[in-house]
């Protein structure tokens, strides 16, 4: 069973870790590029803060998704972490990413609530204006 030797498993897991981590990095980078392009469009067309907040919300979602991938790579890495030092470093990175994911999710929730509140206020104001005019 040579293909199940420790070295073979370690190599396979290492390849998987690199793949998943690269996917996370690509997602984060894509989120930044998309946000930057949308920023360019918004800067020319509309100049409202709420529009930029929506783009930031989407960027935050992409960052959270990228973080999930990076966390997955950390979990994979625990399969082969022979030394105590490597495990400690892994734990530190995983802890940072988990805490970040928590804060990012909270931030996204707050931003979403704020956008919903702004939209409701704008709708109410428009309705009041229409009623006053009618």
């Amino acid at each position: 069973m040579g293909f199940l030797s420790e070295d073979a498993v370690a190599t396979f897991v290492d390849v998987l870790v690199r793949l998943v981590e690269t996917a996370g990095a690509v997602i984060i980078f894509s989120g930044c590029v998309i946000a930057f392009v949308r920023f360019l469009v918004l800067a020319v067309r509309e100049r409202r803060v709420s529009s930029f907040t929506r783009v930031r919300l989407d960027l935050g979602r992409m960052l959270a998704l990228g973080l999930e991938f990076q966390l997955a790579s950390d979990v994979l890495r625990t399969a082969v972490a022979p030394t105590l030092r490597e495990i400690a470093e892994l734990a530190a990175v995983a802890a940072i990413r988990t805490a970040l994911n928590f804060f990012l999710a909270r931030e996204i929730r707050e931003e979403r609530e704020e956008i919903a509140r702004d939209t409701a206020e704008r709708d109410t104001a428009q309705r009041d204006t229409a009623q006053a005019a009618g």
């Binding site: 981590e21 996370g24 990095a25 984060i28 980078f29 989120g31 930044c32 946000a35 920023f39 800067a43 100049r47 409202r48 803060v49 930029f52 907040t53 930031r56 960027l59 935050g60 960052l63 990228g66 973080l67 990076q70 990175v93 940072i96 990413r97 970040l100 990012l104």
Partner: peptide
Amino acid sequence: AVALVTRAPLAGLQWLLDFLLAAGLLRLG
């Protein structure tokens, strides 16, 4: 640019911080 266009420095700063976070996450990997 966001701070200048929207005349809201806080919005610009938050925008910058999001990008800095993304860069930090990339480096963390």
